[in-house]
Design a protein around this nucleic acid. Structure first.
Length: 269
DNA sequence: TGATGAATGCGACGTGGCCG
DNA sequence: CGGCCACGTCGCATTCATCA
């Protein structure tokens, strides 16, 4: 039976097997907010300092209407907002501008296409190379991509048919957001080729993001959970339950110093 | 085609840094 | 110095791939 969205009153649906209702109205304020927060989140465009509360603040003050508007913000727009000083305003603007240089996979993930997580975004980018190719592709094409079945393929296809979404992408282009895959230092030796690596705890020399992209550049896969397929677990300061699980399953455990040694060898080759 | 295992995606909870 | 917010992490539910 149909229900209404508590925020905008629009039609809310519960998809087969899903626990929660989801509003189908593209211009529902709650949906807009969610999409912007997602866009800014760490695995997407990684805009530091832009969390849910700040997004609310910007929306309430009519400073933005969608994620693309972020790129047209200026420091003076922010300094008078509550809890914003000169320092935090400057930092946020800088973080937003820096995010323009992200590669296609982050941008693609940031668009918030249903069922497309960071992993699928990566696979899509690898397969299609450019946003144009993705926008031209059909359902059958998407299903050729690793780990993408019919459900996800259909979802992507539908997304790029929406006029509203196409307009948003145009706006991002206008703002100068990079949508190309970055030329990676293709000479990187693939020392982690075929390996699945899990990271837990805080590292001294890398942020989580840095070490994950490093592992990928060196040919490895980063996973979030330990299983018997895991090649080794990289353990930092105050590790979580993944360490225990690794010990239970007898998976190799590597500390930061040992990891640095592994990379060093690679760089010398 | 059904069962199983692995990984993704999302919400929830504790810690550290910045504003006032 | 106190409160608030983002960050880092974990656990649960869901989904996909694989194999008999």
């Amino acid at each position: 039976m149909p229900k209404n969205c508590p925020v905008c009153g629009g039609l809310a649906v519960r998809e087969e097997g899903e626990a929660v209702l989801r509003c189908t109205n593209m211009s529902c304020p709650a949906q807009i907010k969610r999409s912007i927060v997602h866009f800014a989140s760490r695995d997407a465009m990684n805009i530091e300092g832009l969390g849910p509360q700040v997004v609310n603040l910007l929306l309430d003050n009519n400073l933005i209407k969608d994620a693309a508007d972020l790129y047209f913000l200026k420091e003076e727009d922010l300094v008078n907002l509550p809890r914003f000083g000169k320092k935090s305003a400057a930092k946020l603007i800088q973080a937003i501008q820096k995010s323009k240089e992200n590669d296609l996979e982050r941008f693609l993930f940031g668009l918030g296409i249903r069922y497309v997580g960071l992993k699928s975004a990566k696979n899509l980018t690898k397969y299609f190379k450019t946003l144009e190719n993705i926008m031209k592709a059909g359902i059958e094409d998407f299903m050729q991509v690793e780990e993408i079945g019919e459900k996800i393929a259909r979802s992507i296809f539908e997304f790029f048919k929406e006029e509203h979404n196409l307009q948003l992408i145009e706006k991002f282009k206008l703002a100068g957001v990079n949508m190309a895959t970055l030329k990676e230092g293709s000479a990187a030796p693939q020392i982690f080729e075929g390996k699945t690596i899990v990271v837990t705890g805080t590292l001294e020399k890398f942020t989580r993001d840095e070490v994950e992209s490093l592992i990928e550049r060196l040919g490895g896969k980063v996973s979030g959970s330990v299983s018997k397929k895991t090649s080794f677990v990289l353990v930092g300061e105050s590790p979580g339950s993944k360490l225990k699980k690794a010990q239970e399953l007898n998976i190799n455990i590597v500390n930061e110093a040992e990891f640095l040694e592994m990379i060093k060898e690679a760089e010398n080759i």
